[in-house]
Design a binder for these strands. Structure first.
Lengths: 345, 345
DNA sequence: CTCGAAATGAGGGGCGTACCTCAGAAAATC
DNA sequence: GATTTTCTGAGGTACGCCCCTCATTTCGAG
């Protein structure tokens, strides 16, 4: 005997199909007593609505938006590709997801775009945006308009988002710090921190976590003031080169993300014997190559494919008011060495 | 304009619905020329069959089996729980998955069980079994009977499995070796390897990878003959205690998996200052606690939840002859430090 | 050209659910 | 008890696809 259907419920509850339908879809005009009988029958038979059939009948289509900054770092490119891929797969599942792009730090533009989404028929939004009052208010309005909202990659802890899909960047920074600290042999190591841009919350949090762990666990380390390459490989290469000249005894480099290409090229040139211990963020073609040839010792990363799929699943679940599987939606802070690098592609 | 349906295909191809249906479901009685016209129409409109609707109409139900050894290590317990959870979720999706248990190293019992599956109406099997000729032949017969077969956790590279869901244990061993080697401060470290049982392929492969990396990268290390606790915490505790007495200068311990509880308790007692560098496999309540309190420095693990879900997805895809998303099905060799430990549960 | 076989069209019933209408029954109101 | 209001039942149509039957057309062989 297979799963019970609405018909079984109707029979079991001693009511008609129409009544079962009214109860199940919260339509008006059912006495409380009758509704209870139906719900009891559902309980008793262990009925679970066949979501596939329901969606078929409803002709339901989920219309979702990924709202991303227009930044074009390797990480953002990989993220976009992952989202497009996940969206193509989800298209087989009545889900249409589009990427919308906004000037990177323009909160007003974000707010304007978000405010327009309800009228355009979107049911849910995955949002990667700076944490500002304007964005926060726009998120609240989205929620009031009935859209599901997840903060994506970068959290909005103060805002009315339904969930955060991404990693804890403080913990990621701690992880990087611990790894770097244990990889470096000497107790009085000099460490250089390289940042894309400190304007982004992620990088600030990583830095924070890193500093804390160094302070707690490697108090003998000297951490130099951080280099800011403004997400740009060329300027980063120049800055790094200058820093290595100024302080030749640098033992380790921690790269918070963005501009990795310039960093790696400079390291290859300046440190061919790989005396330096290097920990970087984000798996990109550049960091993969550097991991393979030993220029970088470890990469801390987050699986962009997983994040894209997770955002889609979470949004759909929120739209349907269904529970999510926390284990499946937990994005890991991955540590990659050359030895556990997943195959490319 | 939403997705094209079979009706659109029929119209576009200038044939009737019945013919489209015959083509799509490979039913006989269609001239090749006509079939081609239909397929062209499918191409042109970018039609993709609505699998949900198709399954509904077919009343298709996937009946899947997880065939596991009766071993009751913490890892196997976690794995079973993860499978049960994934199966409960998949039940909402016309998929019934059951766990079948076989005496751990009894190839004959495995073969007998596997041979019975086709008659019992199973469509696919995820199999964790020793790699023996008997099992290999049984897998071939399953394939011939039309079942999808994935090797689960432990690969069957010589057998006709459709895929392997699990990690490369040689790489996992290499990862552990690299991590341990870099965490230990001295170049002439003495390393103790602790195994549950060397009978299992996984543990042998990890050992192999570990040894190779130590040989290549840390040639000064001395690796002691390995301790075998036969997957049993108590006997492992005794052995370890004896080994630490015999060689007090041990610097590091590598635990291949199984019997971790005894290991950890002994370490807590014998090494309260955490002088030892310890790398272990599998995230379990015991290793989690040990990571948190610093008894263990790193854990190499594989996400059991991911593996269970992946096996289900892969089996369904194989049964439907649909493509899979390699990125999503890639099981990671995860490195966990205290800093990037995911929340429990 | 004829005949039989093969190919195709037309149509129905069904999968489990949603959503609608209308008539009739039960309950609440006075 | 009559009347209004609220509930409930019966039944239909639809979603996109599967699978079956039967009549009709087309094709190829002789």
């Amino acid at each position: 005997m297979s799963r019970p259907t609405v018909n079984d419920i109707a029979r079991e509850a001693g009511v008609s199909l129409a009544t079962v339908d009214r109860v199940m879809n919260a339509r008006p005009g059912v006495r409380e007593k009758t509704a209870r009988r139906v719900n009891e029958a559902i309980e008793r038979l262990g009925y679970v609505r066949d979501v596939a059939a329901a969606n078929l009948a409803r002709r339901r289509a989920y219309r979702l938006a990924f709202v991303l900054p227009d930044s074009r770092t390797a990480f953002m490119t990989a993220l976009r590709t992952a989202i497009e891929h996940a969206a193509a797969v989800a298209a087989h599942d009545r889900t249409r997801a589009e990427i919308l792009t906004v000037p990177a730090f323009d909160s007003t533009a974000y707010a304007r775009l978000l405010d327009g989404l309800p009228q355009e028929g979107f049911d849910g939004v995955a949002l990667m945006a700076p944490e500002t009052p304007q964005v926060r208010d726009a998120i609240r309005r989205l929620g009031e308009a009935g859209l599901a909202v997840v903060a994506f990659v970068s959290d909005q802890p103060q805002a009315a988002r339904d969930r955060f899909v991404g990693i804890d960047n403080i913990a990621a920074g701690r992880t990087a710090g611990m790894l770097l600290g244990r990889f470096v042999r000497r107790a009085d190591a000099i460490v250089l921190v390289v940042a894309g841009s400190m304007m982004s919350r992620d990088h600030m949090e990583r830095r924070l976590g890193f500093d804390r762990v160094v302070l707690e666990r490697f108090p003998g380390f000297r951490v130099l003031p951080s280099l800011e390459g403004r997400d740009d490989s060329e300027s980063l290469a120049r800055l790094l080169s200058a820093a290595l000249d100024a302080q030749p005894r640098i033992d380790a480099v921690y790269s918070l993300g963005a501009g990795q290409r310039g960093l790696i090229e400079t390291l290859r040139r300046r440190d061919p014997q790989r005396r330096l211990t290097v920990v970087a963020h984000e798996l990109t073609p550049a960091t993969r190559g550097a991991l393979e040839d030993g220029t970088i010792d470890a990469v801390i990363t987050q699986d962009v494919g997983h994040m894209a799929r997770s955002a889609l699943r979470v949004l759909r679940a929120k739209i349907d008011a269904m529970p999510i599987d926390p284990g499946q939606e937990q994005i890991r802070i991955e540590i990659l060495l050359r030895e556990n690098l997943p195959p490319p592609g």
